[in-house]
Lab assay of single mutants.
Amino acid sequence: SKGEELFTGVVPILVELDGDVNGHKFSVSGEGEGDATYGKLTLKFICTTGKLPVPWPTLVTTLSYGVQCFSRYPDHMKQHDFFKSAMPEGYVQERTIFFKDDGNYKTRAEVKFEGDTLVNRIELKGIDFKEDGNILGHKLEYNYNSHNVYIMADKQKNGIKVNFKIRHNIEDGSVQLADHYQQNTPIGDGPVLLPDNHYLSTQSALSKDPNEKRDHMVLLEFVTAAGITHGMDELYK
């Protein structure tokens, strides 16, 4: 796709999030870079409003799984890469995230190029959380598991539907599940690639910047598309 050509090198990323969870309002600002050749993201996020009212790991899918245009699609799968094909005009990404036995996040993001920078601007609203639950009670460990993110075409809306389940580790050794339902639709009216069913395999590492006084998260992530085999004719070339 034409959009794919915008991702040949390292691309700067800007992320802006405004959130409200159970009436606790907050903002997060992030910057870093993405390299789609390797499916690599390096980002640093800062809570610009003081202390973040929710655990950082609960925002990873909104912040970095928010820029799935940096996923590495192998050559034989490039015609299934909706995310890059929607660029530079970008796409709207909407999600509902259900935390098992707790509340939910609803998010709406616009992901697009502004100049040479890929920008992810998000509004997040969280409701029905227990004040002493795993999320508002800050009981999650500061780490992140690997996940597969399942993608299918949504021809009606000229976009994709995505769903997956995140496993958050809790300090007591148990797990907090979070079910994600995602819809992506193009902002522009140019042609986009509608994929066959496949998935993104994601690995994320969270860390801290020892010199950063503000509440923050440093993230390194690798994302690769998989799940579609080479056609038989490919094998015999």
Rank of each mutant, 00 (worst) to 15 (best):
Y105N: 01
Y91H: 01
T185S: 09
Y91F: 04
K112Q: 07
V162M: 08
K78N: 04
K157G: 15
S204C: 07
E110K: 10
D35Y: 02
D179G: 07
H138L: 04
A225S: 05
T117S: 06
G3A: 15
G90S: 00
I46S: 02
L6P: 07
H230Y: 15
D20H: 05
L194P: 05
G231S: 11
L6R: 15
R72H: 09
D233N: 05
G126C: 04
G190V: 15
L140Q: 03
P195T: 05
M232I: 15
M77R: 05
H147R: 05
T107S: 14
G23S: 03
I135M: 03
D35N: 08
H230P: 15
K208S: 09
T8A: 12
A109S: 15
F70Y: 03
N134I: 05
D189G: 11
P88H: 09
K112M: 06
K139V: 04
P186L: 05
K165E: 13
L140P: 02
Q68H: 05
K112T: 11
N158D: 13
S29Y: 14
L136P: 01
L177R: 08
A153T: 13
H198Y: 04
H230Q: 13
H198P: 01
K213T: 06
V192G: 14
E123K: 12
H24L: 08
K78R: 13
G23D: 03
E114G: 02
Y142C: 07
I160G: 01
G137A: 08
G231R: 10
H147Y: 07
A86G: 03
K213N: 03
S174G: 14
T224P: 01
D35A: 03
T48N: 06
G133D: 05
K213M: 09
T37N: 14
H138P: 02
L136M: 15
S71G: 13
D172N: 11
L206R: 00
L52R: 02
Q203R: 11
G9V: 03
L17R: 00
K125E: 07
Y150S: 05
R95H: 00
D179Y: 09
I46L: 09
D215G: 01
G23C: 01
D101G: 10
V54G: 00
I122T: 03
K51N: 09
F83S: 02
P53T: 02
G23A: 02
P88L: 14
D18V: 12
L43P: 00
K78Q: 11
N145S: 11
